[in-house]
Simulated scan of single mutants.
Amino acid sequence: MTKFLLAVHVLAAIVAIGPVTVAASMFPPAARRALAEPGDPRAAEALGVLYRICRVYGVVGVVVPAFGFATASGMGVLGSAWLIVSIVLTALAAVVLAALVLPRQSALVDGLADGGGTREATARLAMFTGLFNLLWAAVTVLMIVRPGSTTGA
């Protein structure tokens, strides 16, 4: 059962978190292009799609830690330092996405429709998106390396 849970956990991370990190990374440059060409409906449409991908897959991404907890419980590693650090970083990534990335994306999508939005806003969004991606990269490394793990990997 543990192998099944681990497989679902990894697949969910690839399918749910991957699109969020890619779409979130694509959003700031797309927003800068849309701001440079305010009359281009395709640029605004692209921003809307990227925002929707981030929002929907961000919600779907909740299954990743859910199956992660189930897997860790089955492996008996819930108290391991590497896992606790991973949990904290995952929670931090979720907060960054929900509180810093998605609201700024929404504001830029709305601002573009209203003729607003600034390059400074896209720069801040790019910084928060980079932080989000860095947190997920750290979690991924911890999941692979598992320092101090008793599972032999």
Rank of each mutant, 00 (worst) to 15 (best):
residue 16 A to N: 02
residue 122 T to D: 09
residue 57 Y to N: 13
residue 82 W to H: 13
residue 137 A to L: 15
residue 91 A to I: 12
residue 64 V to I: 06
residue 110 D to M: 10
residue 28 P to A: 03
residue 90 T to F: 06
residue 48 G to Q: 08
residue 54 C to R: 05
residue 77 V to P: 05
residue 28 P to D: 01
residue 70 A to D: 02
residue 81 A to E: 04
residue 45 E to R: 15
residue 83 L to T: 04
residue 41 P to A: 09
residue 69 F to H: 05
residue 30 A to T: 06
residue 81 A to D: 09
residue 132 F to P: 02
residue 17 I to S: 02
residue 59 V to L: 00
residue 13 A to E: 01
residue 63 V to H: 00
residue 119 R to L: 07
residue 92 L to T: 11
residue 104 R to N: 07
residue 26 M to A: 15
residue 64 V to N: 01
residue 150 T to L: 07
residue 89 L to P: 14
residue 70 A to R: 13
residue 20 V to R: 00
residue 150 T to I: 10
residue 119 R to H: 09
residue 46 A to N: 05
residue 95 V to T: 11
residue 21 T to M: 09
residue 70 A to Q: 14
residue 109 V to M: 01
residue 139 V to T: 08
residue 16 A to Q: 01
residue 15 V to W: 10
residue 50 L to E: 06
residue 32 R to A: 07
residue 36 A to D: 05
residue 63 V to P: 00
residue 127 M to R: 15
residue 31 A to S: 08
residue 12 A to T: 04
residue 38 P to A: 03
residue 126 A to W: 00
residue 143 M to H: 14
residue 87 I to N: 09
residue 87 I to E: 07
residue 150 T to F: 06
residue 102 L to W: 01
residue 124 R to L: 10
residue 118 T to M: 00
residue 56 V to R: 13
residue 108 L to T: 02
residue 123 A to L: 08
residue 21 T to V: 10
residue 100 L to H: 08
residue 55 R to N: 13
residue 113 A to V: 09
residue 113 A to S: 09
